[in-house]
Amino acid sequence: MRIFVTLLASLFGFLVAHIPGALLGLLVGSIIDHRLSLKSWQDLRDRLPVFAQPHISAQQVLFMLLGHLAKSTGRVTAEHIQAARFEMQRLLLTDAAQKVAIAAFARGKACRLHELRGSLKLHYSTAEQTEKLLMAGWRMALAEGMPTAKQRRILHQCAQWLACPEDRFCRIEAQALRGRLRPLRQRDELQAALELLGVSRADTWPQVKKAYRRQISAFHPDKLMGAGATLAQLDAATEKTRALHQAYEVARKHWAKSSVSNHI
């Protein structure tokens, strides 16, 4: 039952203005409780920036977030581990620092997202820091192909906590997706295409087409235009559909060759 802030506000109001103050506090507190969806006193404590743990470094917070993003898919895969290692290389971490990052990554797998809120706001207060954090998050989300809806919600929540404007968040997302197009040229084209489409080599061509149409329907910018989307949101959707079109063509050529081979 969401009554934590309600009780505090009502008590404070009573102390200040007796019954009228208690009634006003009851009203204001209930609105705040509804907005925050608090479930426990610990939940309230974790939401307050004053309880951020200053002994946790910015890098530890980053790798905790990466661990949380990886685990959000259900299980941490070799691709997630490789993406985390890549971030360590980008940051030029020493062996000792890498051990700390690995421990933070493991800790992030078990934590709740709002537990990171205070530390994120403590260490990533500027626009530049926020962008670097979100780009690292997107790289983790793209480790296995297209990011899941849950991973996008996680990153979007972090962006809101860090006061990152919606348009800026969408531009960062689009930039990350554009980077995802490069693996189609740098490594196994087919495997990269299948990851983007969310299918495997064992699937049939009708299953591949169904997966492609489902994702196109979800991400096509035409759907957003009628919903009042911003230019940045349309840009992100365009990058997604462009990647899906490219992946579909790679898959179509592969299944066409397989069909010819099966009839020889």
Rank of each mutant, 00 (worst) to 15 (best):
H80M: 02
A176E: 09
S30Y: 01
M64R: 15
E239Y: 06
R180D: 09
F12K: 08
A243E: 10
D222W: 01
T73P: 00
D46F: 14
M135E: 14
G13L: 02
Y124V: 02
S261T: 13
T204D: 06
Q60T: 02
L162C: 10
L196E: 10
R187C: 02
F14H: 09
A52P: 07
Q160S: 11
L134A: 10
L8K: 01
V28M: 10
S217C: 04
F63L: 00
W41P: 08
L8N: 05
H156R: 13
L194M: 12
D167K: 07
G137W: 03
L244Y: 01
Q215L: 15
C164R: 05
Q157G: 01
R47D: 12
I172V: 15
A176D: 10
L184T: 03
V199H: 05
T148I: 09
H263M: 10
M140F: 01
Q129D: 11
R187D: 04
S125Q: 12
W138H: 14
T241N: 07
S259K: 11
E144D: 14
T94H: 06
A97F: 02
Q246F: 06
I19L: 15
P49T: 04
D203G: 01
V28K: 07
A256W: 07
K210Y: 05
A83Y: 04
L197I: 04
A52F: 03
L244S: 05
T238N: 07
